[in-house]
Design a binder for these strands. Structure first.
Lengths: 205, 205
DNA sequence: GTCTATAACTCGATAGAC
DNA sequence: GTCTATCGAGTTATAGAC
């Protein structure tokens, strides 16, 4: 019972902190704002997480590992590679669309100079990229796809999926003259576009 | 003479401010740091630009319009479309590589919530995207390229060029295990990769 | 665990001398 | 135009009551 109460407050804080940090960045976020959003007092934040820095560390770490897991695990089923690819693009764009500020947050924090907690977390996360490389190389060996560089494939997929989300304000304004609706329709239609582009880079002729 | 002195100080400030704002973001930047980098006193910043906000406005506006100009003007020559495309990718990747934090800065500031100066500047900049659309449509009419959506083409090119620069810390760590050199070699080799992908989306069969 | 009050500090901005 | 000194608002963090 007591334990549950603790978890509840802690979770409320983490949820609120995530929203504020993601929207405002580590430098722009205010402890007062996080406390307000969590419906608690400012000093409770320090009681649970000691400092703003430590709270940020926790939030970034959780948010980052969730995002990475979603990216790396999805190719691990036994289905046909092209089916997996299509599903991945479909699901991933949906996730990105619903969490549009997360990738910006991650990338932006990782690019900050100075002793960067985000980079420290990234380095200590030990992501195993070779899993993806092995899957791709198996497909190549089996003659299912062209002999391509798995690193290029990976970067191409992420670029085409993430950039339009991250650069949304720019695209919305320049291409769609600020019409939010048009941007969203266009984005939905882009799933096929992205799949076809990636397919054309790996398909055997 | 006096005028020249003014310009020099103003320029020194703008240059220093650009570096600090680009590296730290508007929220993370410190007036003291800008003053130090410009080799002047903090109060001089206020003398020239009144407030941090106004200084940011100036810096963002200049940086943004430089970037946009580079993107939109490059397709405006009379050369063959594929040649223009290849040159653009080549030049643009070089520019991005030398100014790796600029796109992150622009995109990051544009994504901030609240009354956002960056967005105001974007809206008032009146970028004419139709120039690009017209060029593409002419190529289509002339039978030089496939009947494609110019908006998709535009976003594909930018995605493939900008994302790898912006996501550099992530890519460098995940794919190249922190080896800076390997990332740079890989990026140089990607020029062809990007050109070939884009070419395959527009070439007539 | 949670709150109120407040200390300690950072930072943008201004006053005023030169 | 440029500098030194300093104010004052805003923020993180802590002390201490309940």
């Amino acid at each position: 019972m007591l334990e549950k109460e603790i978890l509840n407050t802690e979770e409320k804080i983490l949820e609120a902190a995530k929203e504020i940090f993601v929207n405002e960045g580590s430098a722009g976020a205010r402890m007062q704002e996080i406390a307000d959003k969590a419906g608690i007092n400012k000093s409770l934040l320090h009681y649970y997480f000691r400092s703003k820095e430590k709270l940020f560390e926790k939030v970034f770490s959780i948010t980052f590992s969730k995002l990475i897991t979603k990216i790396l695990n999805i190719f691990e089923s036994d289905e046909d590679f092209f089916v997996k690819l299509e599903k991945f693009i479909e699901n991933y764009l949906d996730i990105l669309f619903k969490n549009r500020f997360i990738p910006m947050f991650i990338i932006s924090e990782l690019n900050k100079k100075g002793n960067n907690i985000a980079v420290t977390i990234l380095k200590s996360s030990n992501i195993d990229f070779s899993i993806f490389v092995n899957i791709v190389q198996k497909e190549i060996r089996d003659g299912k796809i062209k002999d391509i560089d798995a690193r290029n494939l990976f970067i191409n997929i992420l670029s085409l999926c993430i950039f339009p989300i991250v650069a949304r304000p720019l695209i919305e304004e320049i291409i769609f003259e600020g019409k939010k609706n048009n941007y969203e329709i266009f984005l939905a239609q882009r799933k096929d576009e992205i799949f076809n582009i990636i397919k054309s880079t790996i398909i055997k002729i």
